[in-house]
Write a protein that binds this DNA or RNA. Structure first.
Lengths: 184, 184, 184, 184
DNA sequence: TATGAATGAGAATTCATTCAT
DNA sequence: TATGAATGAATTCTCATTCAT
């Protein structure tokens, strides 16, 4: 399965043949079909698993932080870490996949919904506390989710993402705090 | 070519067969290969054309506006208009395509770069005028580009995008102005 | 299509690969799928065509004969001719095929029904004329159809079918006339 | 082995996978290959066993009867009983199988030969006694074997074979007696 | 310019068979 | 004896591409 994620991320759904996957995993074709019903099912499954993993990991970093700045900083740090150390995850979720498999459209919608909800949660808390300006939090969460994804993708395009990671996290945090008008 | 955009957007690169395209255009397969060297070349060409069209259209709406709020509002209005009336454009650029054709990764990078530069331009002007806070404008432009795309994509997911379009433009504009700390 | 009949008759449905068929017909695999939707459809189609051909040919030999002995003799002669000169036809209809393709069960039933009806027709005429004994003609036709098939199949098993053909036709005719108690 | 006969009869040789067979028998795949060298060998073996069983059973019903009418009636009754209560036997021998496995052609020939010989035996006795007309008994036996098979097959096609069985046996007996010109 | 029949490399998938446990 | 995970040859079918007309 790890082999499959790697191959799918590298080659894209269609150019990743079952033969590529099994030879990356060093097993025979038949073995693939012993464990998975078909290529598409595996791909969709992998997409969902990966999406869950990403969101779970970020949420884990967000909860148990007391203030919004901390929540954002830690969540973004977690996101950037995944992007830098497991680029295949980001590749699969943000770039490849959708468009190749029709049944993925729906899964993508679920993923985006969960991602947005994940970022919206700390904003709701902050608004309860009255530390951010009144606003349509759903829309703000959409915008922040998109903003973070784009910055992360740009980060990965740089020659040395690790070096830039710290600055990127800080600047994204500041961007978000300004956008919600945070009054510490 | 319009037929091709439609078919590619509907079915995705791989599921859109040359036969689908030519029958949508009501010509024969041979005719296709008389005008285009192959399927991939056409697709990449279409991607570039579409990307140029999107950026040109938004920029056109942005220039000649005096203030940042106006520039943002008009640009976003143009973007939303395209999304609502030509969803295939957004489908091609933001969802499908990349991941299907390897040679598109590079084109996608160019598109994002141009899109970011396009949003960055009015920010630079505003900073010259001293009406926004000091900040890494490149990063801000990345974030805004991503934010706008995500909101537009969400808009298209709604049952009646047209009805929501106005509110979405306003809220995105406000979001951007807060994020850059605009002091009118 | 002739190539296909030959290959199917020789090898049976499953052992006749599409590659066998196209190389027998000296075309490419793609050409096969340009003309036929799939292997099974072709096979079923061929089975029906062949069944129709056999029955039509025998019926043609039967009609326009005045008396039952003549009708039987000519019909059987036609049947034996096909068997001897186009053994693939008999092979396809009586031996191979059914059991290999599920959807053929129904077609086989139709074929048997038509074959039985074909032999029943001259019997009905003879009964009208009162030249054969009262009996359940449907059952007699079933029995005769089966009897003729078996004798033809045995004929093909012999080293030199052509030599035996004449005797076989005569004996089958006599057998049938005795079985229906024909009083010339 | 009973499971195998059932599965082969239901699905046909090729569509009956080894997995189908072992799961019907509630054992593991490995166990199959402990008892049988391979699928084809089992199938051929089953075909032979089944053929022997059918012929033995009918012959048993025929011997020890004094007169031809009794011999035919009892033999046909036995045949029909098998067909009605063990349709898989008839399915395997008369419909499926041959055409699927090349090495079965020979076995089929043996089966037909034995079946014909079986029906021929009482005819020889009758001719010895001078109660039937002079004729080529071999040919007559072929014809009767084919006739009986066809009627039995038609019987199985009916909605309620049991109800019709008695009549069918009687009519087949009469048919045969007329065909051999029996003078009781 | 336009056509569409023909091509064949390549992909997904199946399934009889093996063998270490 | 019994198991079932692992194998890979073989098969069907697709589809981008060509080329004679």
């Amino acid at each position: 399965m790890q082999a499959a994620v790697r191959v799918f991320a590298e080659r894209g759904y269609h150019d990743a043949t079952v033969r590529d996957i099994v030879s990356a995993a060093d097993v025979a074709v038949g073995t693939f079909y012993f464990y998975f019903p078909d290529k598409e099912t595996l791909f969709v499954h992998l997409y969902e698993e990966t999406a869950d993993f990403l969101i779970r990991t970020i949420r884990q970093a967000v909860v148990n932080r007391a203030t919004l700045p901390q929540q954002l900083a830690m969540g973004l740090q977690a996101y950037v870490n995944i992007a830098v150390y497991e680029p295949a995850v980001v590749q699969l979720l943000l770039v490849g996949g959708v468009g190749a498999v029709l049944s993925l459209i729906e899964k993508r919608a679920v993923f985006r919904e969960n991602l947005i909800a994940m970022w919206q949660a700390p904003l709701e808390q902050a608004m309860q506390k009255g530390v951010i300006a009144p606003q349509n939090l759903r829309r703000t969460a959409e915008a922040l989710a998109g903003a973070f994804d784009e910055v992360v993708l740009n980060l990965l395009g740089h020659p040395n993402p690790e070096a830039e990671a710290g600055t990127a996290v800080q600047e994204m945090t500041q961007f978000a705090l300004r956008a919600v008008v945070y009054k510490g």
